[in-house]
């Protein structure tokens, strides 16, 4: 389905911004998100396509406002809740 991720050919996005000497990650938590996602996929909690699907299901306004790894974190928490791995209350820290 044409979701917000399907941007190929669209017009109106801003100029492309390059960051000189960009590090692999901008903060430790971003690397942790990548590691966490890899751990869940290798454990079979969900697969890579389910993960992509969860990113695509983020509402368009929030998708565009979120940073790259924020989207990842949101997709991970969505899937963990949907798969019954953690409850929403646990996710919220209750």
């Amino acid at each position: 389905m044409s979701r917000i991720n399907d941007v190929g050919g669209m017009v109106g996005f801003p100029p492309i911004v390059e960051e000189p000497d960009e590090p692999a990650f901008h903060a430790d938590w971003e690397a942790h998100v990548v590691a966490l996602n890899a751990a869940m996929i290798r454990r079979g909690v969900y697969n890579l396509d389910e993960f992509r699907d969860a990113i695509e299901r983020i509402p368009p306004d929030q998708y565009l406002a979120a940073s790259y790894y924020e989207k990842w974190l949101r997709a991970i928490t969505t899937l963990l809740a949907e798969k019954g791995v953690v409850t929403p209350a646990e996710l919220a820290g209750a």
Partner: peptide
């Protein structure tokens, strides 16, 4: 345009 995730981009 199937419901859900697909890998055929809209532009194609």
């Amino acid at each position: 345009d199937p419901p859900g995730h697909t890998r055929l981009p809209r532009y194609a």
